[in-house]
Simulated scan of single mutants.
Amino acid sequence: MPKFAANLTMLYNELPFLDRFEAAAKSGFKGVEFLFPYAHGAELIRDKALQAGVQIVLHNLPAGDWDAGERGIACLPARVAEFREGVAKAIDYARVLGVTQLNCLAGKAPAGADPAALRSTFVDNLRYAAAQLAPHGIRLLIEPINTYDIPGFYLNRTAQALSIMDEVGSDNLFLQYDIYHMQRTEGELAATMQKQLARIAHLQLADNPGRNEPGTGEINYRFLFQHIDAIGYTGWIGCEYKPKTTTTAGLGWLSAL
């Protein structure tokens, strides 16, 4: 049976962030994830999760100015010092929160940027981050994201991510495979998950089109959940979708599928 974690950035967003832990627990979720914890103290977030009885399974490294449209800085040559500061901050939070996986968003490639410089910067930053996280028992993840939703996003295909992981050469770097993003970009969901199972540390889901809950679009989640079980995936699946109405009203898929 897959283990589902509520993405608290996307779900229960009618509630203040710190109230979403309890709401997720009441819906039956045992795990939660979110994009960023940095607007709140780590101890406060930890206490909310403990009170709700949920495990925090994932959050992201700092990703630049999100409100201004930035979606990561890891590939940007001029932001290396800021990236490294963010790694230290993320480790501090993860240690308090008991988080053992941190996702690194690559960022958007600036128009006219040298592709070789972007890749070299990304590789060097990942090598640094993976080495910094390892002594704390924290795995580093990278996530390909479709360029329909985020035009210009640097890391956008599975093969590209695997090639970069090979170049980094760290045994502490893994793939975060988002079913929604990869359906939009390349398809071949079941075959890719099976082939790359050893390199996938975390899955995320949403249906397509619309990025809504499973069962609202074209992805055969009944088949995929059975397939994920059959191939032996034992990690978490983050529910990173936009509820069509409210989170609670849209949770029928959990029992239906």
Rank of each mutant, 00 (worst) to 15 (best):
N208A: 15
G98D: 07
L257E: 08
M10F: 12
L126N: 00
A256P: 05
E167H: 08
G41C: 13
V87W: 00
N146C: 05
C104T: 01
G187Y: 03
A159L: 11
P2G: 06
R71G: 09
G217H: 09
E85L: 02
T246M: 13
K195P: 02
Q226C: 06
G69N: 04
I228C: 02
D229S: 07
Y233G: 05
T121F: 07
M165K: 01
S120G: 13
L61W: 01
L197M: 12
H202I: 09
H136I: 05
L97G: 08
I73A: 03
D47I: 05
R157H: 08
T121Q: 09
H59C: 12
F36P: 10
E188N: 14
P151L: 02
Y180I: 12
G137N: 08
E213H: 10
L44M: 14
W66N: 12
I219P: 04
L175Q: 06
Y180T: 11
N156P: 03
D124I: 05
F225R: 01
L102K: 00
P214E: 08
V99I: 09
V80E: 12
L205S: 04
L118Y: 08
F4P: 09
N172F: 01
R184L: 14
A256I: 10
C239L: 11
D65I: 07
Q132S: 08
R46C: 13
G28D: 14
D65S: 09
I150Y: 01
V32D: 04
A5G: 04
V87F: 01
D65F: 11
Y93F: 13
L8E: 03
D124T: 12
P110R: 00
A201W: 01
Q51R: 14
L197I: 12
E85T: 08
R184I: 15
S170F: 00
Y93K: 03
F21C: 11
A111M: 10
D92H: 14
T192R: 04
L126W: 03
P135L: 04
Y180F: 15
R71N: 11
G252C: 11
N212Q: 15
D47C: 06
L102A: 04
E33Y: 07
N212E: 13
A249R: 12
K48H: 13
K26R: 15
P243V: 05
A39M: 14
E70W: 07
